[in-house]
Structures are given as structure tokens and as C-alpha cells.
Design a protein around this nucleic acid. Sequence first.
DNA 1: GCTTGGCACTCTGCAGGCCGGAGTGCCAAG
DNA 2: CTTGGCACTCCGGCCTGCAGAGTGCCAAGC
Lengths: 338, 338
Amino acid sequence: MLSERRLEVLRAIVQDYVGTEEPVGSKVLTERHNLKVSPATVRNDMAALEDEGYIAQPHTSAGRIPTDKGYRLFVDKLAGVKPLSSPERRAIQNFLDGAVDLDDVVGRTVRLLAQLTRQVAVVQYPSLTRSTVRHVELLGLAPARLMLVLITDTGRVEQRLIDCPAPIGETVLADLRARLNSRVVGQRFTEVPSLVQDLPEAFDADDRATISTVLATLLETLVEETEERLMIGGTANLTRFGHDFPLTIRPVLEALEEQVVLLKLLGEAKDSGMTVRIGHENQHEGLSSTSVVSVGYGSGDEAVAKLGVVGPTRMDYPGTMGAVRAVARYVGQILAES
Amino acid sequence: MLSERRLEVLRAIVQDYVGTEEPVGSKVLTERHNLKVSPATVRNDMAALEDEGYIAQPHTSAGRIPTDKGYRLFVDKLAGVKPLSSPERRAIQNFLDGAVDLDDVVGRTVRLLAQLTRQVAVVQYPSLTRSTVRHVELLGLAPARLMLVLITDTGRVEQRLIDCPAPIGETVLADLRARLNSRVVGQRFTEVPSLVQDLPEAFDADDRATISTVLATLLETLVEETEERLMIGGTANLTRFGHDFPLTIRPVLEALEEQVVLLKLLGEAKDSGMTVRIGHENQHEGLSSTSVVSVGYGSGDEAVAKLGVVGPTRMDYPGTMGAVRAVARYVGQILAES
DNA sequence: GCTTGGCACTCTGCAGGCCGGAGTGCCAAG
DNA sequence: CTTGGCACTCCGGCCTGCAGAGTGCCAAGC
């Protein structure tokens, strides 16, 4: 087991390296952090830490830098979550309060998060899975052509065009609309299928085919749209990544363009609490020198989606985690109000 | 005026430089393009072209590279638009044909364009300005709370929440819905204000305030949503930009995140035909070493929005223009069909 | 047994100097 | 106007040397 002091040395190394971006040696370490031991002692500790795989040297006679494993230990045991200052919190609130609709909320959140952390921000649109139905609308566009509009409690609107097998009358449509809404409004998406199952039976045989089509489309929408959309921002911050640009930044940009990758990334994170994935812990190869800090957010106690940031493994974890958590909370509040 | 041969020399310089990314000298020029004159002669021509500001040398005793002015002349007079090969055209068609809704069309277009040109692609969502109304829907969510849903002929859906000054009855609402639709369906957005102006008069005094609110919201939506949304993709291609990374790429990424900048960029382009803005011709400073190739696209003969690519001034203009034009055409077709 | 100072060693990064290559500009001849 | 010749310039690569930072190890001290 690592002694208390060695952990302290590791913490000091991580903090220094994150600050300076340069390998850190035993001398500066004793100077900057009052470790109360000599450089020689620290060197011994560093040798031990290196044996255990927590730090590494880029080349002989250079200082040490933390490994993924070192960051992991730092995040798990050595670092807390740094709360934001109250001006920062006020700024968040003010900035988010100005949002006019869901798109705007997500857009603002992305920008905010990118700005606060100076990293790439990723925000998932609230998922439909855990949402409830606020309203279902059916519009007759033509005799045998309908539009289905689904409105969720998170303010999301989905629409689908439906080609009916047979024309449907206005009164039947109104009837269907009314029955549909009385059954599903306020209900969870997952409940909807069983709630509408027997609806066609209430109608004339002539209309049943059409009504089944409508219901099928509705259910499809619920399922399909569970594949999330997301928004990213702050990619310009990637330029602060390192000195060896093209090689580092390219795969990251590519990964960010693949929504599938990002969704998988967020999906792998825990549903509650904050998740930090460091370097190679991310499956995706292009992201092997980045860390992802993510957290769920939601209007109630349950998370309806996730948000987070992607940055270099060498990042300010406490600060980033603080910002991510704070933003998630405020977004949750905003969603709950609307 | 520049002689025929000098123009030929300029063309050769542009082509070579675009291909090799290196300043091009008189010797290789005579070798690679059969100019039928000696290097010395070409040197004289180059000196003349430099005097006129079409080319420049990075430093004494280096080859020449085209200036913005040189590219301008090249694009205007020396280069055509390179048509795509038929496999390429087929690929475009196949790829776009799979789209299921408007979002998907735009998304696929962006990816396609980025892939074809190996540059950053920008696609504007079809504008509401020139669109017509397909349907307006009013939903009563609560006694004094409505939702307005606007559906356009391009398949776009906008929704707004409305807090009414007074509760409104279902029958009145149905009446309003019917009247509203009978007046505005099929009409251009620009016509709508005059068409609905006198609508409140048809209703009881009690309801007029509410109805005015609804109409105001509708008009607001029409105006506000004329600010376009857009989608960008292929940012990973920025890494192919040049060797002097951070300085070049950063401002570009920043500009790309500012939708306002991009919209202005596209907005400045001609409504019909292709627009090429080269280097400093773009107002935005961050884009001073990039060129923007854009073109309008639309479902009919009129453009409803624009799309284009952003790349280094040193780009393959004929090829890029060909790809942009072709994609715009196919997208137009897709929109017309749906 | 841990801590410490000392010391030799290694490696990077930078500055300076050298050289070859590529390209130019100019000139005089065709 | 075109061409070959020639002197000149400048970049980029390469080597060298040197200072600085950092390490590992050892022997002495607490």
C-alpha cells in the first residue's frame, strides 16, 4: 500500500502537471508544495510510484507525468469536487434563465459548459424514455394524409407524416384525438403501448385500419426517438490541447462528429452521480488521450439525459467536475420550471 | 493587360500549388506543364504577375504562391466547374435518397458534402421566408395556456407556448383554428400578416385580447424563425489545413461555432448561382485564410436556403465548386419530392 | 529503516555554424 | 521577345557544443 506521503506526492504531481503542462521533477515539487522532505526522498517516492504504474517519465532524466492509472487514483481518492464560486453560480443561473425553448436551453447549456470548463461540451437532449406525454395532436392535411404531433413534458415536439390506408372523417379524427389524449396525457412513454392497445375496437370497422396505422406511428415515434440527439460546442478549445497538434486533435474531432460514439460514451456512464472516464478507459481509440466527465440531469429526481465535457486527460478534474455538476443542477431546475 | 501565356502561367501556378502545397518555381513549372518556353521566360512572366499582385513569394529565392487576387482571377477567368463523375453522382443520389425527414436530409447533406470535398461543410435549414404554411395548429394545454404549432411546406415544425390574458373556450379555439387555417394555408409567410390582421373582429370582445396574443405569437414565430438554423460537419478536415496549426485552425473553429458569423457569410452570397469568397474577401478575420464556396438550393426554381463549404484558400476550386453545385441540385430534388 | 546530501550520468533543448539546393534577377546574345 | 548563363540570396537540414534539469545510487546521519 502507498504511504500517506506518497499519495501526497502523487497529488502534487497531478496538480503541478495540470497547471504547467510540463513533466514535474523532484526539486520543484518540494519547493512548490511544502512536503517537508528533501528532493531525494521525493525521488524515492517517485520511483515507487513509477513502479506501481501511477506515473511515468517521457524519457530518462525528464520529470514525471501521471499515467491514466495515476489520474484514476487522483480522481477517486485524492481530489474532491471543487464547488463553483457564487459569482459563477449566479452567472450560470442568469445565462440559463434567458432561454426561450428547449433548443435554446440545450444550446445555452452547451455554450455555458464549454466556456466554464474551457473544454468541449456535450449535451444530450432530454430523453423521451422517461418523459411523459403532454399532448398528442392529429392534423388532417389531406383526406388520407395525417400529421401526428407529439409534445412531451420536457418541451420536445416530434412530428410524423402518416399516409392512411383509407380516408378518415373529421369527426372520427376528433374522436380519436380526444380518446388518445384522455388516455395518454401525463403518462410515461413506456406505459403508452398498453394504454392504447384496445383503442381501435371503439371505432367502426372501416376506420380501424387507419387508426391502427396512427397508433403504430405513435409507438414508432416513441421508440425511434429514444435514440437521442445531442449538441456539442467549444471545439475551438481543442486547440489548447497540446503542442503536437494534428495527431492529437484529428481523431478527437472525428469522434465528436460521430454522434453514435458520443451517445455510446454518455450511455456507458452511470445513471446517477458523476462519471469520469480517463484516457484508455474510453473504448474509442481516438479518445484515448481524453477524459470524459459526465453526469445525468433531469427535471425531477430522475435523470432524463446526460451532459458532460471532453478534454485532455491532463485536465483540472475538481474544477471540471464542479462545473459539470453545477450546470446539470441548474439545467434540471430550468426544465422543472417549464 | 496580361498576355494569354501569363494567364496560363498563373493557372499552372495555382494548380501546382494546390496540388503540392509548396511554393512553385519556374523550373518545375516548365517541366510539369508543357509551356513550350524556357524557365527564364517564365521567370519574366512571374515577375510581371508579381508586380500585378497575383502571386507572391514567401521569401526571396523561394517559389511563388498565388495571392487572394490570384485565386480570384483563377476562379473568375481561368477555371471552370469540374463536373462530378457519374459514380459520384450516383453515390450522392443514393445517399440522399435514404433520408427520412428534414433533419435527416440536412444531416446527410452535411456529411456528404464534407466527404466529397474533404472540407468543412455548412448547410442552412430551408428558410421560412419563402416557404408557405402547410398548417397551423392550436392546442389548449390548460384553460389559459395554448400551444401554437406551425408546419411549413418544407416539413419544418415550429412550436410556441402562449400564456393567454384570459381563458378561452374549446369552441372558440376550434373556430379560430378553422378560420386561421382557411386563410393562411398555402400562403407565403410574407403574406400572412395582412391576411390575419382583421381576424379578431370576427370574435366576441371577451376573446379578442387572447386572439390578438395568438396572432402576435404567430407573426413573431414567422419573423424570428427567419433567422436560420444551420448544421456544420467535417471539422476534422481542418486538420489537413496546413503545417502551422494552432494559429490557423483556432480562429476558424471559433468562427464556425458562431452561427451568426456563418449565417452572415451565407447571407452575403448571391441568391442565385455560385458564390466564391476568397481569403480576405470574407469580412470575418478568423476566416481570412479560408475560402467559402456557397450556392442556394431549393425545391423549385427559387432558392430557399444555402449550403457550401469552408476550406483553405488553397483549395481545388473547380472540384469543390462541382461538388457543391451537384449536391445542391440533388438536395433540391429531394425537397421537391417530399 | 527512513531520510538526506552528494555526485556522476543522461537526456533535452537551444544556439551557432556550415553546406547544399532551389530559386531568383539581371544581362547580353540570338 | 526569348533564351542561356551566372552571381546572389535564402531556407532547411545537419552537426556540434553547451547549459540545465532531472535522475539513480550510495554512503552517512538520525
